[in-house]
Amino acid sequence: MKLKEIMEVLKAEELWDFPTDFKVYSAGAADLMSDVLMLAKENSLLLTGLTNTQVVRTAEMIDISAIVFVRGKRPESEVIELAEKLDIPLLLTELPMYEACGILYKHGIKGSSQVEILQK
């Protein structure tokens, strides 16, 4: 599923101007950064309710394709600036975590543990 399609199904807003015409293969959802580090795979989407700069840093460490902030929690401008600098797309959806995950799963986005690591 392409990021632009994900944006449509989650009715998500772009938090900075990034390309959306790339594929996302899997997703993981967590509010604890250590869990994100171990769960997520590269080319993967991260859904989280946490909105600080460490989310972006954590995503950078494991080459997350894009971050989706759920429950309409908007990050501070410095978080968006850091993501733009590190070239990590940020999306914002009003949907709660469970619903956002459910919708993506229904559209065929697998969980991070269900896909093999994709070599870049």
């Binding site: 840093r57 950078e60 080459d63 690591i117 070599q119």
Partner: peptide
């Protein structure tokens, strides 16, 4: 916080070190 690890990661990339190794070092 995280800036040092970010620098480490990009330097290792420049060295041409394999992705799975970089990932483990980064974490």
């Amino acid at each position: 916080a995280g800036e040092a690890s970010s620098t480490i990661k990009s330097k290792l990339k420049q060295l041409g070190i394999g992705y799975s190794i970089i990932r483990r070092v980064a974490i």
